[in-house]
Computed example of a mutant assay.
Amino acid sequence: MDVVSDAIAAVRVGNPETTRVSVTGTWCTRIEGYQGAGFHVVLRGSCWLLPDSGDAPVSLGPGDAVLLPHGTGHILADSPTDERTVRQAVPLERWFASGEPFPGTVPDPGDTVQLLCGKYRLDRSRKHPLLAELPAVVHLPSRVGGNQELRAAIDLLGRELELRGPGSCIAVQSLLDLLLVYMIRSWMSDGAVGAWPGVLSDPVAAAALRALHTDPAATWTNDSLAVASGVSRATLARRFTTLVGRPPMAYLGWWRLTLAARMLRDTQDPLATIARRVGYGSPYAFSHAFRREFGTTPGRHRETADGRRRR
Rank of each mutant, 00 (worst) to 15 (best):
153 A>S: 15
174 S>G: 10
161 L>Q: 13
169 C>Q: 13
216 P>S: 00
194 G>M: 12
165 G>S: 14
146 G>W: 01
170 I>K: 11
234 A>S: 12
151 R>T: 10
230 G>A: 01
169 C>E: 14
199 V>P: 02
186 S>L: 00
244 V>D: 00
139 H>Q: 06
205 A>W: 13
173 Q>C: 07
206 A>I: 08
171 A>C: 08
228 A>H: 12
210 R>E: 07
165 G>F: 10
151 R>D: 02
191 G>Y: 03
163 L>F: 06
213 H>E: 13
242 T>M: 09
241 T>L: 12
205 A>K: 01
208 A>H: 07
157 L>H: 11
186 S>T: 03
205 A>Q: 13
140 L>S: 06
229 S>E: 04
186 S>R: 01
199 V>Q: 04
148 Q>F: 00
244 V>S: 01
163 L>R: 03
221 T>C: 07
223 D>R: 10
201 S>K: 07
181 V>A: 12
182 Y>S: 02
146 G>L: 08
164 R>F: 10
231 V>Y: 04
239 R>N: 04
227 V>P: 07
222 N>V: 10
159 R>I: 08
176 L>P: 03
210 R>Y: 12
232 S>P: 07
163 L>Y: 05
239 R>G: 00
231 V>F: 01
223 D>Y: 07
217 A>Y: 03
172 V>K: 12
241 T>R: 13
159 R>L: 13
170 I>Q: 13
207 A>Y: 10
175 L>S: 12
158 G>A: 06
158 G>I: 06
225 L>K: 09
223 D>H: 09
207 A>G: 09
171 A>H: 10
190 D>N: 05
146 G>P: 01
151 R>C: 03
154 I>D: 05
160 E>K: 05
219 T>G: 15
195 A>C: 04
185 R>P: 00
159 R>H: 11
190 D>H: 02
198 G>W: 13
185 R>V: 06
244 V>F: 03
228 A>I: 07
170 I>T: 14
219 T>P: 10
218 A>D: 01
208 A>N: 06
235 T>H: 09
211 A>L: 06
185 R>F: 10
226 A>Y: 15
239 R>I: 11
187 W>I: 00
